[in-house]
Amino acid sequence: MSDELLTPTPAPAPHSLLEDIQGLLTGCLFVALGVCMFREAGLFTGGTTGVAFLTHYLLGYPLGAVLFVINLPFYVFGWRKLGHLFTFKTFAAVGLLSAYVELLPQWVGFEHLNPVFAAVMAGLLAGTGILILIRHGASLGGVTIMAIYFQKTRGWRAGNVQMAVDFVILLTAFAVSDVQKALLSMLGAVALNVVIGVNHRTDRYYGV
């Protein structure tokens, strides 16, 4: 038997504070850019962000503010089940995302945005951003908190859990939007959850 097989796998080194800060800043920026692309194309997404989109489209409330408020109840669950540090990082991440969503339109605009490209690219950006946050011990609240909890406690893959809930939420898009936009919104949800499902597994790195 080779020495390589006998050598135990070293435990992953914990992230430093600076690494966690850059992870939150970068992950939230990726997600926020995806959210802005969804909004520009008139599309929806899943999770609590999808509920925030519905509120934004129907009532006209600022998307960033709604996104922050709607996640508040999930912090209680996260605090009890997933730890204080995780919940604090999640609170910071949702706050950052809410700020980014309101600030990004002042920094970047889309003169032309193909809706199919917007659905796929926004989903990929959001999924990558969420993956970065998960690997730094944070989330964007809501469904992601529940998905991580079930992955850690029951071995259910987080991407599959999130995808199932997202599709239920996205079904409401058919009631408030046209069929094309509703279908494209589902395409975006698939792109988002494929990134998480492929890259975040129980036998792979969680991030600490």
Rank of each mutant, 00 (worst) to 15 (best):
V31R: 03
L140Y: 01
Y61R: 12
Q106N: 15
I132H: 02
W156D: 10
L67Y: 07
P115V: 03
V143Y: 06
F30N: 04
L6H: 12
S177D: 07
L17S: 12
Y149S: 05
I196K: 03
C28Y: 09
E4V: 12
K181H: 15
I70W: 01
V161H: 05
L6T: 08
L43H: 00
G64V: 09
E19G: 06
G78F: 05
T202Q: 12
V35A: 00
A41S: 11
F150I: 01
L124G: 01
P12F: 10
L140S: 04
V179W: 14
S98A: 15
Q106A: 13
F53N: 07
L5Q: 14
H15A: 14
I21K: 04
G159R: 06
V76Y: 08
T48D: 09
F77G: 07
A92N: 03
A92I: 13
A92M: 14
G109F: 14
R80I: 05
L104N: 01
M1I: 05
Q151R: 03
P73Q: 09
L72S: 08
L6S: 13
V143Q: 12
I130T: 00
N114Y: 08
I196F: 01
F53A: 07
Q22A: 12
T128G: 11
L63Q: 10
F91K: 04
V31K: 01
Q162W: 06
V168E: 08
A11H: 07
G95Q: 05
G207H: 07
A189G: 11
L6M: 13
A173I: 09
H200A: 09
R157W: 08
M37Q: 10
F77E: 00
M121P: 01
M37K: 10
G83E: 06
L5G: 02
G78H: 02
